[in-house]
């Protein structure tokens, strides 16, 4: 029962939603729109589950003083402060509030800093790992250097080759890049269709959990 009901529901809803593409009647669309709304509500409810899960995983580790418990404590305090600030700011948070302050002066700089650090690690990783060890790696290296030089104004301003670099870069992006990506997209799409069919038909059951 615990497995059969979800399998029947998956089959019926999956089949119904696929039908939207084949039955262009407006009444059918009204029902699919209704299902989509249910889906959006369920997705919003996942935030609550995530919140509970975060507390369930981290709080016991803080209480037992397990490894890195201090970081987890900071995370839980930040979570509580943001949550309270968010609720007290009300539904519409356009004006100045604690929530906006937390966003502007902690989240924005931290988020931007984490992303900016990538530049340093990419430089280090490129130096250490980007070696022409074989023909494939040499081709990749050559293409990467051309694209990197041509993407910045300094590359376009180089004497003699400056005019040709962007054209060559566009050729790399438009021909070999597209050929490879289309192959990957089509392969992935066929895989997604197969997986979707397996889920609808109940052959793939991993989403139902281990029990």
């Amino acid at each position: 029962m615990k497995r059969t009901v979800p399998l029947i529901l998956t089959f019926l809803v999956g089949l119904f939603m696929v039908g939207e593409y084949f039955i262009p009647h407006y009444r059918y669309r009204i029902w699919t729109a209704e299902f989509l709304e249910w889906g959006v509500i369920l997705a919003a409810a996942a935030f609550v589950l995530g919140l509970i899960n975060l507390i369930q995983v981290n709080l016991p580790k803080v209480l037992k003083r397990e490894r890195d418990w201090g970081y987890k404590l900071v995370m839980l305090i930040a979570l509580a402060v943001t949550l309270v600030a968010g609720f007290t700011a009300g539904e519409h948070r356009d004006g100045p509030s604690v929530y906006k302050w937390v966003y502007d002066y902690t989240f924005v700089p931290l988020n931007a800093t984490m992303f900016a650090l990538l530049a340093f690690y990419i430089a280090s990783a490129a130096f250490r790992a980007f070696k022409a060890r074989n023909l494939e790696a040499a081709l990749l290296l050559g293409a990467a250097i051309i694209v990197m030089v041509a993407r910045v104004p300094a590359g376009e301003s180089l004497p003699v080759i400056g005019d040709y670099l962007p054209r060559f870069m566009n050729w790399i992006m438009d021909v070999p890049n597209i050929a490879a990506r289309r192959a990957i997209f089509i392969g992935a799409a066929l895989g997604a269709v197969a997986t979707g069919l397996r889920v609808i038909l109940g052959l793939e059951r991993s989403h139902l959990g281990a029990d």
């Binding site: 430089a123 130096f127 250097i145 990197m148 030089v149 300094a154």
Partner: peptide, 8 residues
């Protein structure tokens, strides 16, 4: 960009 290319 030129720095990374130089390093590579």
């Amino acid at each position: 960009h030129l720095y990374i290319i130089g390093l590579i």
